[in-house]
């Protein structure tokens, strides 16, 4: 089993610096999900772990041992590439079995594993096809099976489910979580999909522009964001943010807002007009135009209609404050009281 530790990792491509002094620990045997906008360096990080795109400087440790210069093959890693990287001249079976043949696994054992894992990814009847004869989603599943069959210490997966339909994706998520529990291996999983991140992760690592914004359990990331970026990246619709007079920003999640027709008795309350209404079945999203800006409201109450004048109120405990440097102002911070008062949330 293996935990991974990055120490002062820098990475540049030519003159372009994409990562500077990155420090991160990925726990042994955990399901860690890397999320962040496109181009933030997720793939770059995976490639550093795998050893196929080494860092420009800094150290990479595995189980406390320095692996910065270790050959990729010796790291005990399987990787699902973002663009699959299947071997085009081999059929599905050969693709899956290639890594096992190279470690000279006996044929019966190999065949058993191939059958088992191609069953899991639902490709048992496609083993003789070549990658060019498969659909995008099928190719992705071959890539997945090719990595799974090696049962390594560390799994690196670069958006392994991005091309699957919703039903299959849910099913494969389940399979991956189960596999992780069964093998107790370290999973590093990259995704764009925050639902996927929230539902699968033991730990979420949120990145932006080559920097780590926050690392924590899904609950921490959601309930206790460190900064504006985290607050807005996680959650759909994202957290509402409104500028305040003192230069700080007030934030609250769309689902904690109470929508009513009368002014609330106390605490934060603002008047506005409903601009749009989206009925999604179990819940309804309203966009409310306040004096300070637009906010989204997520509620089960579908009785309001577009154009209606309403009041919104938020409990003090549900409010977040961010300083001019976009960092969170937590309870106990020097400016917390001031912000609470500016928001009108103080009793």
């Amino acid at each position: 089993m293996a935990g991974i530790e990055f120490q002062n990792i820098c990475k540049s491509f030519g003159s372009a610096k994409v990562m500077e002094n990155l420090n991160l620990t990925i726990e042994d045997g955990k399901f860690t999900v890397l999320v962040g906008p496109s181009g933030c360096g997720k793939t770059t990080l995976l490639r550093i772990i795998a050893g196929i795109g080494p860092a420009s400087s800094g150290r990479c440790l595995m189980d406390g041992k320095d692996i910065t210069d270790l050959e990729p093959a010796k790291r005990g890693i399987a990787m699902v590439f973002q663009n699959y990287a299947l071997y085009p001249t081999m059929n599905v079976r050969e693709n899956i079995v290639f890594g096992l043949k190279n470690i000279r696994m006996p044929k019966e054992e190999r065949d058993k594993l191939v059958n088992e894992y191609s069953q899991i990814v639902g490709l048992l009847d496609q083993l003789q096809k070549s990658p060019s004869q498969l659909s995008g989603g099928q190719r992705q599943r071959v890539a997945l099976a090719r990595a799974m069959v090696k049962t390594p210490k560390i799994f690196l997966m670069d958006e392994p489910l991005s091309n699957l339909d919703a039903k299959l994706r849910v099913q494969m998520r389940g399979e991956l979580i189960e596999l992780q529990k069964r093998l107790g291996a370290t999973f590093v999983y990259v995704t764009h999909d925050q639902v996927e991140a929230m539902s699968m992760a033991d730990t979420i690592v949120l990145m932006n522009k080559g920097e780590i914004q926050q690392k924590g359990s899904p609950e921490e990331i959601y309930d206790d964001p460190n900064n504006v970026f985290t607050a807005q990246f996680i959650g759909t619709p994202p957290m509402n943010l409104l500028a305040m007079e003192n230069g700080c920003r007030l934030g609250y999640r769309p689902e904690v807002v109470r929508l009513c027709r009368e002014h609330a008795a106390a605490g934060y309350c603002a008047a506005g007009n409903i601009v749009t209404r989206e009925m999604l079945g179990s819940e309804t999203h309203y966009k409310v135009r306040l004096r300070d800006g637009d906010v989204m409201v997520k509620t089960q109450d579908k009785s309001f209609c577009a154009g209606e004048a309403v009041y919104i109120s938020v409990a003090a405990g549900d409010m977040y404050f961010f300083g001019p440097d976009e960092q969170r102002i937590r309870e106990g911070h020097a400016r917390y009281r001031e912000c609470l008062e500016a928001a009108g949330g103080a009793l």
């Binding site: 990729p72 093959a73 890594g99 190279n102």
Partner: peptide
């Protein structure tokens, strides 16, 4: 594509294996 070589490296393919199984085909 470079990724194919990288995948082969991670699949423990030796240099000869990479030549005969990937480059040559």
């Amino acid at each position: 594509p470079a990724e194919i070589f990288e995948a082969a490296v991670l699949d423990n393919a030796s240099r000869t294996k990479r030549f005969f199984k990937i480059i040559l085909p």
